[in-house]
Amino acid sequence: MTHTISVSGPVLTKQYTSWSRNEPAREWAALTLLSEAIPDLVPHPISRTPAPSLTMTTLPGHPLAAPLHPPHLTALGDAIETLWSIPSDTLQRIDLAALVERTRTGLITLQDGDGVIARAASAWLNSEPADLTAVHEPVVAHGDPNLANYLWDGTRVRIVDFEDAGQGDRAVELANLVEHLSGRGTDWTPLVRRFAPDPDRFHAARRLWAGFWLTLIAPGGPSAHRNPPGTAEAQAGRVLTLVAGGPRGVPGRPGCRSE
């Protein structure tokens, strides 16, 4: 965990315990930008300290959880579309090159093992996704599309937790959402059709994120202990399906299972 949270009435305080990616500054910059443009979508930043900590307003709603149903997908799409309508030029750019290198390095280690995880790592490395480091369609990248960061009040969705925010690539951000483990079991087809990303770029981005997740949850990975037995093997199957498949497959379905 990079932070702890305390709530007092309508005010939330986020105390950072680590900030290797400059998370406090990223979150403050994103909330300042977004709360001025769309004040009812994100928390309003109140203050920050050198400690570092941030205070901000709380938002109504409960975290989304998979599988998402049509009303959730529509409201989530509305929130994302609004988020992406705000110019992102003032935000620090997401370091996609570092993401690619981290994923590649982790998979090189995993390919030396046995079983489906090693096969998936080798398949990814032997057919590495196309270069995604050049931003084609810049948007405000949320950076952490865990469904718990999208609050549903029964009508609409609001967004919290911007510590990994920055300027990102539209197709890569959409793929990040679709491939996040929290969304397993959701049919993302309606949302993907709504945003109509370039099929080849979107598929390459899905493969990148799927490989990234495998490095996190495979044995020895930093998140391996947070998931039940079989999660890493299921993710390896998802990687193999994405590597073998073309860019026009149905989003969200390959290798789906509750994780």
Rank of each mutant, 00 (worst) to 15 (best):
R257D: 03
G185Q: 07
A37E: 10
I46N: 07
I86W: 05
I159M: 05
I159T: 04
G252F: 03
G106K: 11
S35G: 09
A141S: 12
A123W: 11
I46A: 11
P138K: 02
T186F: 13
L208A: 08
S122F: 15
G185H: 03
V243P: 04
G168H: 11
G166I: 12
I86E: 06
L216K: 12
T74R: 11
R170G: 01
T55R: 13
L91D: 12
W28L: 06
A234M: 07
G252T: 11
L174G: 02
G245D: 15
T155Y: 01
R184A: 10
D89E: 13
L107Y: 08
R21D: 13
V160I: 13
R248D: 15
L64S: 08
L68R: 06
T90R: 08
L96I: 15
S127D: 15
P197Q: 02
E233D: 13
V140H: 13
H136K: 11
D78Y: 02
A234W: 01
P50D: 14
I46S: 07
P145Q: 07
G154C: 02
H136S: 11
D144Q: 06
P199Q: 02
L59A: 07
E233H: 10
L177F: 11
G115M: 09
W213C: 07
I86G: 05
N227C: 07
